[in-house]
Design a protein around this nucleic acid. Structure first.
Length: 282
DNA sequence: ACCCAGGCGGGCG
DNA sequence: CGCCCGCATGGG
């Protein structure tokens, strides 16, 4: 399979939810990585020179379904030329694109994105990984290799608050139980695929523990709705510094500017802004 | 000891 | 609306 303008390394080391629950052996020099997919393990290798992706798989995958999994997981159908042209409207963004060219917005399941970002609130990336790992160990089913998979909402919804908190979740235990109940019963996450961005966001924000930022993260990484623009402390600080002359701005004002500058692909702009802000490129 | 981390809900004016 | 507060936990 061929993918031009793809950087497995930038994608795999970018702090997207995929990297919270397993993206192993990612290397900058060789562009190798493997990860636990829904129905088995996938290993892939990407050649920068030829753009060719080779892969292997285990579990219930065959060659065709593994290829489809990789393609959708790593956003290989996204038209990066078009996206870069659309969001590269100022020098700062063009520089971020230059530094992380080939980084894609990945696609997780809505539930996976939901759990990851409910855990992420008022937390840091290292600890998010640890908590997701603990939740997988305790509530995930074992695959054929004996490895714990990402926990299903049905299982967590049946767990007690103290068992959830024992995974290190802190005060987020009740949010986790609540969204697990909702996702496995009345919420029906699949229907959001057919909803407009704002309606889907309103729907998510009705859930306890999901606010403006987490809703946008779920829509971006769980549904690949690129109008979503998650504003965390990094994005807020950087936007204020670069685009507002260092002055404090409200979340609402920052949303307004992101839409104005980057339009329908502002979610992609956010990912490049985030990585630029967290590295020394900004 | 202190500060911060990919925020959210609730209470206040 | 905007602002302020508390919130569990662990690493720097």
């Amino acid at each position: 399979m061929l993918a031009k303008d793809f950087s497995l390394w930038h994608t795999a080391s970018s702090g997207q939810p995929l990297t919270f629950y397993g993206m192993f052996g990612a290397r900058e020099d060789t562009e190798d990585a493997s990860y636990p997919a829904r129905h088995g393990w996938i290993s892939l290798s990407h050649s920068r020179k030829t753009g060719r992706i080779t892969y292997s798989f285990s579990g219930k995958y065959d060659s065709r379904s593994a290829r489809e999994e990789i393609c959708s997981r790593f956003g290989l159908r996204h038209d990066l030329d078009k996206i870069y042209e659309s969001i590269g409207t100022d020098g700062f963004m063009r520089n971020a694109i230059r530094s992380f060219r080939g980084m894609r917005i990945t696609k997780s399941e809505p539930w996976e994105a939901c759990l990851c970002f409910v855990v992420s609130q008022f937390n840091n990336i290292k600890r998010i990984r640890g908590i997701i790992l603990n939740l997988s160990e305790r509530f995930g089913e074992a695959d054929e290799m004996g490895c714990r998979m990402f926990p299903r909402p049905e299982r967590i919804s049946r767990a007690g608050l103290s068992d959830i908190r024992a995974c290190g979740t802190g005060f987020r235990d009740r949010y986790i139980k609540h969204v697990a109940e909702q996702f496995s019963h009345s919420f029906e996450p699949e229907r959001l695929y057919r909803m407009k961005y704002q309606d889907a966001k309103d729907s998510l924000m009705e859930l306890d523990g999901i606010g403006d930022k987490v809703a946008d993260c779920i829509l971006l990484f769980g549904y690949n709705k690129f109008e979503a623009f998650p504003i965390d402390v990094w994005i807020k600080r950087t936007m204020e510094r670069i685009y507002f002359n260092g002055k404090k701005r409200s979340i609402r004002q920052i949303h307004a500017l992101s839409t104005e500058l980057w339009g329908e692909y502002c979610g992609y702009a956010q990912q490049y802004l985030f990585e630029a802000a967290r590295s020394d490129v900004a």
